[in-house]
């Protein structure tokens, strides 16, 4: 079992390089006015790619016991459940928005 993975220097540096490039990209896309809701989708998509890169290569999930990945994804799943079902309420209230 290769859980004592030692990353190569080139992996670490290229991942960091990719992260910096994506950071530039996510700022750059705001210079073009992408219409709602695609601007949010693009921004979150880039963030997910970045987070995945950090998790896989900096946090070694790529080489690690698969179960750790499952555990980590589980947290995201339950967060999605929380947001999803709560939105089922907040987006569909008859009275509309709360009045200040």
């Amino acid at each position: 079992m290769s859980t004592h993975h030692i990353s190569t220097l080139s992996t670490l540096l290229s991942v960091a390089g990719a992260l910096l490039a994506l950071t530039f990209l996510t700022v750059a896309v705001t210079w073009f006015n992408i219409p709602e809701p695609f601007n949010v989708i693009v921004a979150i998509a880039i963030a997910i790619v970045k987070a995945a890169a950090v998790a896989m290569f900096f946090m070694n999930l790529y080489w690690d016991d698969r179960f750790n990945t499952i555990v980590f994804l589980l947290s995201i799943l339950f967060l999605v459940i929380f947001v999803g079902i709560t939105l089922l309420d907040t987006l569909f209230r008859d009275a509309g928005l709360p009045v200040y």
Partner: peptide, 11 residues
């Protein structure tokens, strides 16, 4: 509680 009826039904 005043949550949407839709979510009450789903819950």
């Amino acid at each position: 509680s005043g949550q949407s009826e839709l979510s009450s039904v789903v819950f």
